[in-house]
Write a protein that binds this DNA or RNA. Structure first.
Length: 481
DNA sequence: TGAAATGTTGGGGCG
DNA sequence: ACGCCCCAACATTTC
């Protein structure tokens, strides 16, 4: 009997899981293992919302494994010691895992790989998470040439099927109860997460099918509208590997192939594929520029005069109490559901980094703790992009006006009304600028500015000018990208 | 995957 | 009828 360990890390699915498939091809016995070692994540240890998701994702994976006659073995780290212990207990000869791309995890995995090989084990690592791994494409700093480069490549990879059955584990194999990892919050702030999300591979597949059936047809047009359910909402499932990008591309290709009028669908399919490739691009950047999790890619920004003494403004931003409805709606959606519409992410990020002139890293840390889809590659790219200091960055002077953005992308104010009930009775004409509403209108709407809803904490025109002036300070420093 | 400032054009009101 | 001005609408430039 040959035995393999499949080390699950962030690939919590049975279908299109190359590590699992390879293990089953080569060995009679397979030990599905999760090792909890948060200290190995370094400076970006799991945030609260991610811990919540992880708990439910591990539950779902264990359920799926049990249906096939196996189960998930859960242990606490350190990873290398734990793997060695399992090897000793099972006599495993091979270990399989799917690769991760965060700098500190690459370093850890490389070291573990080397150590286990010197123990005499056979190690095989696979790609489950990306369409194209970072080192297969030369370094790019701009998305468009990257996009053109990958379009020339073959994206026709067919996803692997899930196994039909799994070999049983040795009897009474020691495993920790999931609760021992203490991933769930001790105070119950997670009701909004429960209402909005279901973790796990099956839920991910349902969401994909639902997206393809309902929202894909209008994706290119509606993806920027937070008042519509026009996006896939697959991001947390993708982050935890409950679904893989190959599976998504494949499912969309089947759908577009079956559609009667392919041109309309193709535009939407390509628009969505582009977003998936942005996700690959974020991993590409993190791999080639690993310092960017903490440091701006554009080195001029190391000397950017960020606002000091900004605790109050930062708190208002976090709580959704800035007085700008679209910003506050986004921040409250984030707090309640662990997710925010992408267009609104750009608006709140622009507001933080430009109107409040608070460092993008503060925003990145808050998102890291509150997002169920918190992903180091995507988070780093997104924040540096908006702040103007990253790859393919919006020029610093591209400053969003939250009133105009609100009126353009939430024209009826439905998104604002949903997340800010105290503004719900304001008409569309003033819902994005309540401080400009006539007092009679405010009274009719039951509004008391400064009491039921804050007045704006900054002046848009002045803060914009101050941000532009701050940029002048670093503009001409050499070493720019 | 901006917004504001500035420039240009052309229709219509009016003396 | 004609020139002049106003200003919306659109285009271009600048930050």
């Amino acid at each position: 009997m040959t035995t393999a360990i499949v080390w699950f890390r962030r690939d919590f699915r049975l279908s299109d899981n190359p590590a699992l498939t390879e293990a089953l091809l080569t060995c009679e016995r397979v030990v599905p293992l999760y090792v909890h070692a948060p200290e190995e994540d370094g400076r970006w240890a799991l945030g609260s919302a991610s811990r919540w998701w992880l708990h439910h994702s591990l539950t779902a994976l264990d359920d799926s494994l049990r249906k096939l006659g196996s189960c998930l073995i859960i242990r606490r780290g350190p990873s290398l010691e734990t793997l060695r212990a399992i090897v000793a207990q099972t006599g495993a000869e091979r270990i399989y895992w799917n690769r991760l791309y965060e700098p500190e995890l690459i370093a850890r995995d490389t070291e573990i790989n080397r150590a286990l090989q010197s123990d005499g084990l056979i190690i095989e690592t696979c790609n489950s998470a990306l369409l194209h791994e970072p080192w297969t494409i030369k370094p790019y700093k701009v998305f468009t040439p990257y996009w053109k480069a990958v379009q020339r490549l073959d994206l026709q990879q067919t996803p692997l099927p899930a196994p039909k059955a799994l070999p049983p584990l040795p009897a009474r194999f020691e495993t920790l109860p999931l609760e021992a990892l203490r991933l769930l919050p001790t105070i119950p702030w997670d009701s909004g997460l429960k209402e909005n999300w279901q973790a796990g591979e099956n839920a991910a597949q349902r969401r994909l099918q639902n997206f393809i059936a309902s929202a894909l047809a209008g994706y290119a047009e509606k993806r920027d509208r937070p008042d519509y359910a026009g996006t896939s909402r697959l991001s947390p499932h993708l982050h935890f590997g409950e679904i893989g990008p190959r599976q998504i591309v494949h499912a969309i290709r089947i759908h577009t192939g079956a559609h009667e009028s392919p041109t309309g669908i193709l535009k939407n399919a390509e628009s969505y594929l582009r977003e998936l490739v942005w996700r690959d691009f974020a991993h590409h950047l993190l791999y080639h520029f690993p310092q960017t999790t903490e440091h701006p890619l554009d080195e001029r920004f190391a000397r950017f005069p960020w606002a000091t003494d900004c605790t109050e403004a930062l708190t208002a931003w976090r709580k959704g109490m800035t007085g700008f409805p679209i910003v506050d709606a986004g921040m409250r959606e984030l707090w309640h559901t662990g997710w925010m519409h992408n267009r609104v992410r750009m608006m709140v990020a622009s507001f933080l980094t430009k109107n409040l002139r608070i460092s993008w890293l503060e925003g990145a840390r808050w998102f890291w703790d509150t997002l169920v889809d918190a992903d180091l590659a995507n988070n780093t790219l997104g924040w540096q992009w908006t702040a103007g200091c990253g790859a393919d960055a919006a020029p610093y002077f591209r400053i969003f006006n939250p009133v105009l953005q609100g009126e353009r992308f939430d024209p009826n104010g439905d998104y604002v009304r949903r997340w800010i009930p105290e503004l719900a009775r304001l008409p569309a004409s003033h819902i994005h600028r309540p401080w400009q509403a006539p007092s009679a209108l405010l009274q009719d709407s039951g509004m008391h500015l400064g009491e039921t809803y804050p007045r704006p904490i900054v002046d848009l025109r002045i803060s914009r000018e101050q941000a532009l002036a701050a940029f002048q300070v670093i503009k001409r420093i050499p070493g720019a990208i």
